[in-house]
Design a protein around this nucleic acid. Structure first.
Length: 461
DNA sequence: CTAGGGTTAG
């Protein structure tokens, strides 16, 4: 049931007949609100219920992970345990899913401990959820361990592993898994191919990607949808084959969406193709006139080409339409606590040390050849102010804090709400070289593993 | 036996 109007009607009837004490009726209503994405209504009802049982808790926890902040799922889970409700396997899958969404490594390890201690067997669903959780927490090897231990794997399990290798930049391994899957007799589906093509494009495996794209229909009867085309546009576009990418877009018989044009625009950014970028943005703005991200991306492309008048034009368009760039946030877990940073943030208790660290780090980095790229600052301010803004990007603050607060040699794991900024990407490479630290960044799309001055994404993101 | 569970594209 996903009809909110009807759902509220049913809610009224339940109230009228005094059925609020009935846990089945209430759980179903909570679930209905959750599925209609009105999580606050679900929570209100949940709070009013007298006898909440495990299923109701599970629905509520899942609703938060689905609709809003997975952090709230974890809080609720703790509360449930405190109330003495004992989770079962389905509840664990729900909480594993919340950890995956958050990328919260510490919580993930607690959950694993809980699962082991209570001897929940790794059935195909719990195992698959754990693969996804580990991968999205940046621990691709742990994900693979779970995968290898699983006795029963279905198409979702295989797809999750292929996808995981894909967004960690291990295209070859994704292809290996795909072949293992075929050998085991499981047939790939639509999502398997999205994951596989994505893995190819993000590892620059052009010929392989093209081959799989034609194979999917010819050999597996899986019809290409807009997502597969998006992967192919990305694959060709990254490789600089923009003409072919455009040709594909123009020839496809499937309805085009904003992410397809977004892939083309991303390729234009990498290769500095302004004409095509403008075409892509025009199509994007037809579909989503209020998405600030599109303006920002085009503005960055202009900035890189030194077309400052056009940058100003974009900025004016944005302010006319009252569009604001989504503020960048970065999270880092230190000593089992999550810290959040925004640009120029000085709220952290160790803020002075963090800025001091950034300053000394900056000097070393610049000696090593790092040149801050103020083109990534969109604001119309003096160069010096730009430099200050650039150096206080949330990512850099989180990395500096990680360097201060964690032991030498331990990897630094951070999570971002946006795509990684080009300058922060360069910065992270230099930091990994100079400090001998591995830096693992989860951005909104994928993972970057920085090690000894290089990134696993091969600078294509 | 009946409410609740996993994978995907910029």
């Amino acid at each position: 049931m996903q009809d909110l109007k009807m759902g509220r009607l049913v809610h009224d009837i339940v109230l009228k007949h005094g059925l609020l004490a009935d846990k089945f009726a209430c759980a179903a209503l909570v679930d209905m609100y959750a599925k209609c994405k009105v999580v606050d209504d679900a929570r209100q009802l949940f709070d009013k219920m007298q006898n909440r049982d495990l299923v109701t808790w599970t629905v509520m926890i899942g609703a938060f992970a689905e609709c809003r902040n997975a952090d709230e799922s974890l809080v609720l889970f703790d509360w449930m345990i405190e109330e003495g409700v004992v989770p079962d396997k389905v509840a664990m899958v729900t909480i594993v899913n919340a950890c995956a969404k958050l990328g919260a490594m510490y919580r993930a390890s607690l959950v694993r401990y809980y699962i082991c201690r209570n001897k929940f067997s790794l059935d195909v669903i719990l195992g698959t959820a754990m693969i996804d959780m580990y991968a999205k927490c940046g621990c691709i090897d742990s994900a693979r361990e779970i995968f290898d231990r699983m006795q029963v794997k279905n198409v979702i399990t295989w797809s999750a592993m292929i996808a995981a290798y894909g967004y960690h930049g291990h295209g070859r391994k994704a292809i290996d898994i795909f072949h293992m899957m075929l050998n085991s007799g499981v047939s790939p589906n639509v999502i398997t191919f999205v994951s596989l093509l994505y893995a190819c494009s993000h590892s620059g495996l052009i010929e392989e990607g093209l081959r799989f794209f034609s194979l999917m229909w010819d050999e597996f009867a899986v019809r290409a949808d807009v997502k597969h085309y998006t992967c192919m546009v990305d694959l060709l576009g990254r490789a600089g084959r923009l003409d072919e990418a455009l040709e594909l877009v123009e020839s496809m018989a499937v309805e085009k969406d904003e992410r397809l044009w977004g892939a083309l625009l991303g390729a234009c950014r990498i290769h500095g193709n302004i004409d095509l970028a403008e075409k892509a943005v025009n199509s994007l703005l037809e579909l989503q006139p209020d998405n600030a991200g599109h303006y920002v991306l085009l503005s960055n492309i202009y900035a890189r080409a030194g077309r400052w008048k056009d940058v100003a034009k974009m900025r004016d368009m944005m302010s006319q339409r009252r569009l604001k760039k989504v503020p960048g946030l970065t999270w880092i877990e230190v000593d089992n606590k999550t810290y959040e940073f925004s640009t120029g943030d000085r709220t952290h208790p160790r803020s002075e040390k963090i800025y001091a660290m950034l300053e000394s780090l900056g000097k070393k980095l610049e000696l090593a050849g790092y040149v801050p790229d103020t083109n990534f600052v969109l604001h119309d301010v003096d160069e010096e102010v730009k430099l200050g803004m650039l150096y206080s990007h949330s990512e850099k603050l989180a990395i500096a804090f990680g360097l201060i607060a964690t032991a030498d040699g331990t990897p630094i794991r951070i999570t971002k709400n946006l795509r990684v900024c080009g300058d922060c990407h360069t910065f992270s490479k230099f930091v990994s070289a100079i400090t001998q630290r591995v830096i693992i960044v989860r951005d909104v799309n994928r993972f970057h593993h920085f090690r000894e001055g290089t990134c696993s994404c091969g600078d294509y993101w």
